[in-house]
């Protein structure tokens, strides 16, 4: 099954060959996740920023949460839990570069979900988190 985010990644790669001019917006990425979520669960009733915030701060049975590195206010810079390297803010309000490249979004959800949950995140979980991040104002 080909996900909408994958299609967006592929389309974005074709469009941006040799340049970075046609980057996606957080809203476009959210729409792709919405299509994936609808396909995964026919009863899909929209993303929830509140669920996203809970998910972001939960440890999911392991040592880390998303907030471990990104802090519980992701408009602020974070710190890598093992290397100590500074992490630029994750919320678009704190960093307009975030959620503008479908390939980067896919790469980091893949890696970080594996680190925090030891599995891939569902489209609903990703969309909830993005909904919360997008809801954070300046």
């Amino acid at each position: 099954m080909r996900s909408a985010l994958t299609v967006l990644v592929a389309g974005w790669c074709i469009l941006t060959t040799g340049g970075d001019a046609s980057a996606a917006s957080p809203l476009e990425i959210q729409r792709a996740l919405e299509a994936d979520a609808r396909q995964a669960a026919p009863g899909f009733a929209g993303f929830s920023a509140q669920r996203g915030q809970q998910f972001f701060n939960a440890r999911h049975g392991g040592d880390w949460s998303c907030a471990t590195c990104h802090t519980s206010d992701p408009r602020q810079p974070g710190t890598h839990a093992t290397t100590g390297k500074a992490i630029a803010p994750l919320a678009p309000a704190g960093n307009p570069d975030r959620f503008t490249s479908p390939a980067r979004v896919e790469k980091w959800f893949r890696r970080n979900c594996n680190d925090v949950l030891r599995r891939a995140c569902t489209p609903l979980e990703k969309g909830d988190v993005l909904a919360w991040l997008m809801s954070l104002g300046r």
Binding site: T82, K107, R110, R111, N112, N114, D115
Partner: peptide
Amino acid sequence: LDRHFGTDASLD
């Protein structure tokens, strides 16, 4: 790289 010193650092 998917098991890179305790984290998933996989690349395409």
